[in-house]
Amino acid sequence: MEIPYNVEERQDTGMYNAKLGIWLFLASEVMLFGGLFSAYVFLRMGDITGTFASGSQELNVPLATFNTLVLITSSVTMIMSWVSLKLGDMKKFKMHLGSTLLLAGVFLVVKYFEYSAKFHHGIYPDTSTFFSIYFTLTGLHMIHILGGMVVIFYFLVPGSKMMKTEPERFTNRIETVGLYWHFVDLVWIFLFPVLYLL
């Protein structure tokens, strides 16, 4: 038996199931990163030797600014891909979703150069409390980017067949992936000032 409201909205809640599901998932993600940001505040308050202030001086602000712009752009292309689907333009959809995937890749490559520059200077997670939290937070964020890329790749290539059979359901799927992607983007927008600028 089909599960109701898998594709169409339920009238009194105004949502299809997956949309509520992804919002709940994101709520839990907020608590996950919230816990880590609280840890940052807690440790920084007890940081009598000033490793936080001196540590953030060593980070590369121009690269991170570039990465911020990359992620924001990827969020825009994500939205455009969903809009293209709504308009039924499969070609544009693929172009925009492809650009999102590409931009996510650019972000990771830049991050790779940042990390290796740190390792090159002998800076590791155990260098100081600041770098411990820097590597943990950005590492966890990168895992989220990677997870998003796997899902985006799936919908770009093998998963896009669904558009022919169940176009509405496929559009919903892209909307939920988009919500996740914006969240990952938003986490970076918090990480950037907290780690690089403060």
């Binding site: 709520a27 839990s28 608590m31 996950l32 816990g35 880590l36």
Partner: peptide
């Protein structure tokens, strides 16, 4: 909402 901070 309570489990994620433990995961952190």
């Amino acid at each position: 909402l309570a489990f994620p901070p433990l995961e952190a």
